[in-house]
Design a protein around this nucleic acid. Sequence first.
RNA 1: GGGGGCGUAGCUCAAUUGGUUAGAGUACCGGACUGUCGAUCCGGUGGUUGCGGGUUCGAUUCCCGUCGCCCUCGCCA
Length: 593
Amino acid sequence: MLRSHTCGELRLSHVGQRVALCGWVDTYRDHSGVLFVDLRDRYGKTQVVFAPESGPETLQAAKSLRSEFVVRVHGKVAPRPEGTVNAKLGTGEIEVRAERLEILNKSLNPPFQPTGKELPGEDLRLKYRYVDLRRPEMQRTFILRHRMIKLMRDYFDALGFLEVETPMLGRSTPEGARDYLVPSRVQPGTFYALPQSPQLYKQILMVAGYDRYLQVARCFRDEDLRADRQPEFTQLDLEMSFITADDIIGIIDGLVAGLARQILGLEVPVPLPRMTYDEAMERFGHDAPDLRFGMELIDVTDLAAQAEFRVFRGTVAEGGRVRGVNAKGAADRYSRKGIDELTQYIVEGFGAKGLAWFKVEADGRLASPIAKNFSADLLAKIAARMDAAPGDLLLLVADRFEVTCKALYALRKRFGAELRLYDPAVMNFSWVVEFPMFAYDPDQHGWTAMHHPFTAPRPQDRELLRSEPGKCRAQAYDLVINGSEAGGGTIRIHQQELQQEVFGLLGIDAATAQERFGFLLDALQYGAPPHGGIALGIDRMVMLFAGLDSIRDCIAFPKTQRATDLMTGAPGAVDSKQMRELGIICQNPRNRP
RNA sequence: GGGGGCGUAGCUCAAUUGGUUAGAGUACCGGACUGUCGAUCCGGUGGUUGCGGGUUCGAUUCCCGUCGCCCUCGCCA
């Protein structure tokens, strides 16, 4: 070892010891006769003093030090002189009097200071990721990430789970997200696909009798990126046999409570609250509601039907809904122009036809350009239904149910942030359960799986599969943290006949099913136990637990929104030789042989 | 694929209605300084205003195109 201690370790109790420290030059303060260097590693900072007693050679060498040089210092731990203690540093009561200095490596002047007060643009941070990752905030995040994953592994290990690795090179299944493809050299013209999740493998492991499976699994989906979405991400993937949905939920409750206690010091009461999908859509307009604040959606369809207002009546007559939110005390926060902006936001972003609004005046009456279309009695009823108080801003959307959900969910989310309706330090955990089995796809005139095609319906909904698939509910459950989907799982179909039936509903004929999922259908006929599981998005959970706004800040080497790596330049062109070996001809001129 | 924001010194930003030599802080370089810790003081280097085109007597500013980064809709079984 080149060092005897780390830069965050030394205390008054070490005074008098000869030590060797290694680290990066954080800052240096040259007073000509005496020179201070703050030496940094991921454990902390220690002040090293170069003085005449260090010897002329060492002092001279110290003057050549610059930002981010990597050095090794031998010296003696000394208490700091009175009045020079630095309370901001863990090591602030001592300093190391340098006796020898070795420059292990020089550094170019870094493009930005890892401990500077100004955070540079994200593209620069990504290009020089090794400098960015030196920042204490980043190091704290990755220590947190490590601890969370360790706690997860320990928790499931104690419950008897086995960690089993599944292949990265699998076969493409056109359902779901777009696959990342890997050409096969040995089988020219064929492709592997990187896993979107280990879904089928873990079900096979259940058939194989590994009744408690776990994996920290890398997953790949070739879809557009977002602040909380990366093309490759990590799931805590697990599966169990001989269990019910309640068992899975209960085990994850225990995990979440443990993480909250040990990572955040929060006591989270379990069982976590559960809400059905239908309730979530009614009350919040979304299947991952943010329960850190109220402002629930309020239905006024019955009242709207009585108004003279043609937009409302027409919508109701066509089977639509009129719903809204009450932005408490926000009447003054949003001018006419501000409301126009909100209107544009939901019209252009979510296909709403418009936004009706009322400001609640001091006498409790509703003021609005459209108020003349409502009787006083009706306005009073709307005010009462929406719990209106002077100074409130009532916003209403009249449209198809789905559109009111999207638009009002977006408005509620905006108000939550803009009006600071929640404490950023608060963490809220809940479950959304009983998702529909299927969603209707008007483009393809057929049903698509809401979760995935291996999801089991609720036993009591078995008959609905034939009669009314749209009303059939799944044994599915999503973990929601602060309005973010943190994970989801289902009880799987373990009987071949039922699986065939569901494939049939999804428009996957027997031959196609056999071609793509034959191995699973086969396996289901060789003693498949009842089973189910869940996958938690580790990156997202770390992001939420660390209070970060971007998933990129908790992934060591993330991709940009255009799915490139600014440090390595990936993806890049390849040799024509490589292409020939793979039997691939590229249409893009960047890669013509 | 659509909508929006941003792009000026190594970095973070400013620059009046389109008008003089594009500024500041910081970093960097040189000098001074024996107790600093975001050291201080003095001096200095540093610019294809992302790129290309257009309008104009004159463009960082206006217009068009393009590239990059970010947010978002679609997409994400």
